[in-house]
Design a protein around this nucleic acid. Sequence first.
DNA 1: ACCTGAACACCGTTCAAGT
DNA 2: ACCTGAACACCGTTCAAGT
Lengths: 211, 211
Amino acid sequence: MAIQRSEIVAEALNLLDAAGIEGLTMRGLAQRLQIQAPSLYWHFPSKQALMDSMSDALMEGVAREVSPSASCDERILQVAREIRSALLSRRDGAQVFSGTFVPTENVLRVGESLICALRDGGLDPGPAHWSAFSILYYILGFVIEEQGMAALDTAAFDAKKKALQKMYQAQFPNAFAAAEAVLSSDPDIRFTFGIKHLIGGLRLDGNSQHE
Amino acid sequence: MAIQRSEIVAEALNLLDAAGIEGLTMRGLAQRLQIQAPSLYWHFPSKQALMDSMSDALMEGVAREVSPSASCDERILQVAREIRSALLSRRDGAQVFSGTFVPTENVLRVGESLICALRDGGLDPGPAHWSAFSILYYILGFVIEEQGMAALDTAAFDAKKKALQKMYQAQFPNAFAAAEAVLSSDPDIRFTFGIKHLIGGLRLDGNSQHE
DNA sequence: ACCTGAACACCGTTCAAGT
DNA sequence: ACCTGAACACCGTTCAAGT
């Protein structure tokens, strides 16, 4: 019985979880599927095409039901959190997703939900569109860094801290404080704080813009 | 006469320009330097360490002289443009820079300049700090995508457009319009529009917040 | 239509040994 | 201190051939 494209993608995500993006190899994937590596090239023209499908699959459950009664802020916050969760759900998920723009159904639906909420918030098409990208890039950048830090072993982590200590703290006091925060504060809290601030800056109707 | 670390980094950037991130190999670099690949491991413990140095070198000329007379908005805009230029100055520069946080002098100076401008704009340390990350992530995400699109040959580019056409335009009208814009509009204009809107949302003193 | 065997042209990294 | 030769353990991809 022939193997399904969807099975390959699902198993590729399992391999990603188990071995990280470095360990995501065509040979390793083939082995898990009990086929030979070249067979994969009948289903996908390249590893990149497979990773594009993985990116789409990552967004499978995101923005499925966006509560229409919620405020625009809340809808954006909800979708943003769902995107982050989806990227975090697999090791190095953000790195897989990053890179090239993939105009597939799941990705477009996520984009649509963000832009819709922004438009409902009173933004014109242009600003809504740029704002959606700002939000996506923020999430992607945040999670790439988050998963990158998580991938460091304690030795590498300490090395980073050491490198930072070696800089003159007095020379770049603000950047130093920011770097320390990245290395030590709770990412959930950082994410919520940052995304709320980003949303709060978008001048949507109905948020406390003038206070 | 022994080779300098800085020569290796400089040549690595040249190789990046010539061959892209896929073609950036220790063997290829060694050849350009007229040494053998294993010799590089006396100077750098790993390829990643070399790429960290490349990231730092990319930021070499950024935020060197930020005009103190300019408004906060203008200073941020200037630094943002310098960062984008720096990333664009080498093929796949944004991808090299992306990934792990590198707390080196050039990187910290760039961060410092952004946070300083934000603080001068009246932001408290926390918001200034998150806003700086939002701006950095926006730029990084933008340029990764920009360079990713540039790397597509015309066949791959057309394939993306075709994939987009195959989606029901009516299903995701806003995302569709946004995707079309990414594929066809001038990146310089898109960048300026997006970053200005992002800065404009930060509620700095002295910009037209209430209009 | 779907898969394999064998091969091509590479990788990053280690390590003993050279100078 | 700095570099080499040889090797280890891999890669993505192609392609003729099998079923």
